[in-house]
């Protein structure tokens, strides 16, 4: 449905390096990246706000040079950007001044009910909370009947207690309003809950793209693994493999101490560096041949009397728990 080919954009110190990807109709596409990695600039490029090199196709049609007002992509900024000279209702209905909105009365009433904003319709923008602003900004964007909704970190200014219900609403928007969503965030939890597909973007480059589970659990390179918070990333040569540019990672919970099961495992003798008790689990740092492994053991299965800092022990990693990068 939306196809991006070699999108290049340089603005100040920000560069988007020839990005290419596709977004399917009525899907929830999340671009995951660090703050300052060019995510907002990418959304602005898709909306037509930034001039780009490369091509953007929508339903097979080249829309690269179509201006934002003709492109029909809705945009919700991180700070919502509600017009301060209008109240909530006028903000939502702003697009009807400039384009014909089909069934606008029904759509408006439905949005008001769906996003629960009936009570605040006449309120001035300066009197809205973060969550209210967010719902109004989404209503305003959807009211313009966009084909694609671009969301720039829409949950970052929302109280954490409301995030779950808002995430559910975001997910429902796709079917309810026949829309495709492209959502940028730095939050893995949002990506994991919302996305059908995820692209990881670092320093203006798309490092990995694919189904959510696959991307979040099987990073294809070192940068993505580090960004996604994978721990215990070491060269594959550590396990006896010869490739120099190959790495492996293992979940800290999957490293076992002094286990009886020694079939199909990698085993190492280690020195216990540090043991930290954290509420329901223990964090244990162990040194194996110069590399520091980070292990987590749940307190219910951990016998602290058997491990002491400075002493040697054995750790075991099941081969099926090793992910190669």
């Amino acid at each position: 449905m939306l196809k991006i080919e070699n999108l290049f954009l340089k603005k100040g110190s920000f560069v988007l390096h020839k990005l290419s990807f596709e977004v399917e109709k009525n899907s929830y596409f999340v671009i995951l990246g660090k703050t300052g990695s060019g995510k907002t600039m990418l959304l602005e490029a898709l909306a037509g706000i930034q001039k780009i090199e490369g091509k953007i196709y929508f339903k097979g049609k080249d829309i690269t040079d179509v201006p934002p007002e003709k492109r029909n992509f809705g945009f919700v900024y991180q700070d919502f950007i509600l017009f301060p000279n209008m109240n909530v209702e006028k903000n939502i209905k702003y697009s009807s001044r400039y384009k014909k909105i089909e069934n606008k009365k029904i759509l408006f009433d439905d949005l008001v009910n769906f996003l629960q904003i009936k009570e605040i319709l006449k309120r001035e923008i300066k009197y809205l909370s973060g969550g209210e602003k967010q719902r109004v900004a989404i209503a305003r964007a959807i009211y313009s009947r966009p084909k694609i909704l671009l969301l720039d970190e829409p949950l970052s200014a929302v109280d954490p207690t409301f995030r779950n219900s808002i995430m559910k609403s975001l997910k429902d928007i796709i079917k309810r309003y026949d829309i495709t969503i492209i959502h940028v965030t730095h939050n893995f939890r949002e990506a994991s809950f919302l996305a059908d597909k995820v692209a990881v973007m670092l320093d203006g480059k798309i490092m990995q793209i694919g189904d959510t589970f696959e991307v979040l659990n099987e990073p294809k390179n070192l940068e993505v693994a580090k960004f996604l918070g994978f721990r215990n990333i070491f060269p594959a040569s550590f396990l006896g493999f010869e490739q120099k540019d190959k790495y492996f990672t293992v979940d800290p919970y999957k490293i076992k101490f002094n286990t009886d099961n020694k079939e199909g495992v990698y085993s190492f003798t280690c020195t216990i560096e540090n043991i930290m008790g954290i509420s329901d689990h223990f964090k244990i740092f162990v040194k194996v041949g110069g590399e520091l492994f980070f292990c987590k053991v749940h307190e219910s299965i951990f016998d602290i009397s058997k491990l002491h800092e400075g002493e040697n022990a054995n750790i075991y990693i099941d081969k099926k728990d090793v992910t190669f990068i």
């Binding site: 007002e69 809705g74 900024y77 950007i81 001044r97 964007a141 313009s144």
Partner: peptide, 12 residues
């Protein structure tokens, strides 16, 4: 950004 949003909403 107010102007960017307004453009996405159809305003010239």
């Amino acid at each position: 950004k107010y102007e960017h949003v307004a453009r996405t909403l159809g305003a010239n």
